[in-house]
Design a protein around this nucleic acid. Structure first.
Length: 287
DNA sequence: CATTCGTGAAGACGAAT
DNA sequence: ATTCGATTTCACGAATG
């Protein structure tokens, strides 16, 4: 369990046990002149995710030690080497500034979405690569940051829907989607279509459903998968339908409206899908 | 009364051209 | 850049319990 970000999250499945707790941390700083405040100021302070982990240093050019004494020849050479390296980092200043800002955003969004630590790290890595490959020009830092989080969450098997991502991001959905596709393609990232099953725990949890129902939902999905019932269908929709169907099968009270609410999927879609799921279930008797 | 179900028109998206 | 096909959504009314 990890509750350092105000949420109690199951480490391996990403299930959010307690969600609406307060993430106390300092107010986030202003980003730039175009800072459009309003929504989502829920970021936790970042220490270990700073762009350089707080290790950047300034090295004086004089060959004196902290007491003002001159340095020996050996020491002097050592200092030269250090300066060289330090300078090397400094010349990357513009990129570093981007990184710093982007990582802050990534951390903020991941925190707001209750994503585990490893996802943030993955997102950071993706962003760094994007930066290294000069994918930034023409695209907003915000957009790429968001896309990185989206991709990272999917790769880690704890996907968040595009809508959920959009809620905590500062850019529009269409741009996120566009940037995401671009980044995935350019970086050759391997992201399989989201697995509907990975949404199940979260939905079931939000609806207070039994473990049995949750398990049932998974079965329905696996079943559907084998029969190729999905394909072109929204993974989130399938997950929502499976959860609803499972609730019915285990006689637990839930309405389409409730599922629709937590999954952010229309009732109509849930209806269509869960009919398909149940049909698939019949054609293939439980093994 | 609440919930579920089905429909048809409209929008969004991806693929193909 | 536009067109096409499939999917999802919205709004509504009917049926079900």
């Amino acid at each position: 369990m990890d509750d350092e970000h105000g949420e109690t999250v199951c480490e391996d499945c990403g299930l959010v046990v307690e969600s609406d707790e307060i993430d106390r941390g300092p107010e986030w700083r202003a980003f730039d002149s175009s800072e459009k405040d309003e929504k989502s100021r829920v970021g936790a302070p970042t220490t270990n995710m700073m762009h350089d982990k707080g290790l950047s240093t300034n090295i004086d050019w004089r060959d004196k030690d902290a007491y003002g004494n001159s340095l020996s020849g050996k020491q002097r050479q050592k200092m030269q080497r250090l300066r060289k390296w330090n300078e090397r980092f400094r010349t990357r200043d513009s990129k570093e500034r981007n990184l710093k800002q982007a990582l802050g955003e990534i951390d903020r969004m991941a925190s707001a979405l209750g994503l585990p630590e490893n996802v943030r790290e993955t997102a950071s890595v993706i962003y760094r690569r994007a930066l290294d490959e000069d994918l930034l020009p023409g695209r907003s830092i915000e957009g790429v940051s968001t896309a990185s989080v989206y991709a990272a969450a999917r790769q880690a098997g704890v996907p968040r829907s595009l809508d959920e991502i959009t809620d905590v991001s500062r850019v529009e959905k269409s741009e996120i989607a566009r940037t995401y596709r671009y980044v995935v393609r350019e970086l050759g990232l391997e992201v399989k279509p989201a697995d509907p099953e990975s949404y199940v725990p979260r939905f079931a949890s939000s609806l207070d459903l039994s473990d049995e129902a949750e398990h049932r939902a998974r079965q329905l999905l696996q079943n559907a998968k084998e029969q190729g019932v999905h394909s072109g269908k929204s993974p989130v929709g399938l997950a929502a339908a499976a959860v609803y169907a499972a609730a019915l099968l285990t006689n637990e009270k839930t309405t389409q409206a409730a599922v629709s609410e937590v999954a952010d999927i229309s009732e109509v879609t849930i209806r269509n899908r869960y009919h398909e799921l149940l049909e698939a279930e019949q054609d293939l008797p439980v093994a």
